[in-house]
C-alpha cells in the first residue's frame, strides 16, 4: 500500500511540475546600480540627439514601454503621469519614455504622447532608439518576446539617471508617489533621509534584508503566521492528554 501511495505522490509531483513553467524573471532593483547608462542615440519629435544630452541638462527618469502592449504599460504610464502631476513642478527632472520594441516607429510614440496629453509638455520626451539592446543591457532590463501572444513579457521598469549618467535608482512595478519622490531625490543627488524598509515600528516582518551583505532571512512575521496552526496543535494534544489522565483516574 505504501508503495502505491509513494508512487501516487511521485506521479502527482511530476505532473504538477510539468504544468508549472517558471519564467526567468529577475525583478531585483539593485542590479546595474551606480553604473553608467549607455549613451544611445534617441529619435524624438524634437529631433535626434544622444541620451547624454538629455541627462546632461537635467536628471531623467526613463520608463520602458512598447506601444502595442496590452498589459502593464498603459496603467504604468497613466499612474506615472498622475503621480508626476501631483508633485511640485519646481522639482528638476525629465521623464523619458523609450520604446523597447523595434517595431515601434517615432509616429507611434508621438501618437502615444498625444493619447496621454503630453505632446506639449516639455518635461516629457517620447523616443525610439536603434540601439535598444544596448540600452536594455546597460540598465539590466530583459523583455522576452512571446510569439504566441505577440507581446513582450516584461516588468514595468522606471530607471533613475543622474546628471552624470549614472543609474542611481530603479523602481519595478506601479509605485506610490512616495517611491517616486525618493527616486527624484536620488537623481538630483539629494540626501534621502531613510528608506521605509526595514522600519523599527514594523515588528513582524516576514523577511529581513541586509543591504550590506545582500542576505535575505526569515523573520518574526513567519512565526506569527505559524502561530494559529501551532496553537491548534497544542490544544489538540492538551485535550488528548487530559482525556488520557481522566481515563487513568477512572
Amino acid at each position: 500500500m505504501l508503495q502505491g501511495v509513494l508512487t501516487f505522490i511521485l506521479i502527482t509531483i511530476c505532473v504538477a511540475s510539468s504544468f508549472s513553467k517558471p519564467g526567468d524573471y529577475s525583478l531585483t532593483e539593485e542590479s546595474r546600480l551606480y553604473t553608467k547608462i549607455s549613451d544611445v542615440e534617441l529619435a524624438t519629435a524634437q529631433g535626434r540627439f544622444r541620451l547624454s544630452e538629455v541627462y546632461g541638462q537635467s536628471p531623467v527618469m526613463i520608463a520602458f514601454i512598447f506601444t502595442r502592449c496590452s498589459g502593464i504599460c498603459s496603467p504604468f504610464l497613466l499612474r506615472l503621469n498622475e503621480n508626476i502631476k501631483a508633485l511640485s513642478s519646481k522639482i528638476n527632472f525629465r521623464v523619458l519614455v523609450v520604446s523597447f520594441d523595434s517595431a515601434d516607429s517615432l509616429a507611434d510614440m508621438v501618437a502615444l504622447a498625444q493619447r496621454y496629453g503630453l505632446t506639449a509638455n516639455s518635461q516629457w520626451l517620447f523616443a525610439t532608439t536603434r540601439q535598444i539592446n544596448e540600452l536594455n543591457t546597460s540598465v539590466g532590463f530583459h523583455p522576452v518576446w512571446d510569439s504566441t501572444k505577440r507581446q513582450y513579457d516584461h516588468e514595468a521598469l522606471l530607471v533613475g539617471v543622474n546628471e552624470n549618467g549614472y543609474i542611481v535608482k530603479k523602481l519595478t512595478g506601479i509605485r506610490e508617489p512616495r517611491d517616486l519622490l525618493v527616486m527624484i531625490k536620488e537623481i538630483n543627488n539629494d540626501f534621502v533621509l531613510s528608506y521605509p524598509l526595514p522600519r523599527k515600528n514594523m515588528l513582524f516582518s516576514c523577511f529581513t534584508y541586509n543591504p550590506a551583505t545582500g542576505e535575505k532571512k526569515a523573520s518574526l512575521g513567519l512565526v506569527v503566521l505559524l502561530l494559529p496552526a501551532l496553537i491548534t496543535l497544542l490544544l489538540l494534544f492538551w485535550f488528548s492528554l487530559k482525556k488520557q489522565e481522566a481515563n487513568r483516574a477512572s
Partner: peptide, 14 residues
C-alpha cells in the same frame, strides 16, 4: 497612532 505598522506581506498571508 503610527508607532506600530504592519508588514503588508504578513497581513496578506494571514
Amino acid at each position: 497612532s503610527g508607532s506600530f505598522v504592519n508588514d503588508p506581506l504578513l497581513m496578506k498571508n494571514l
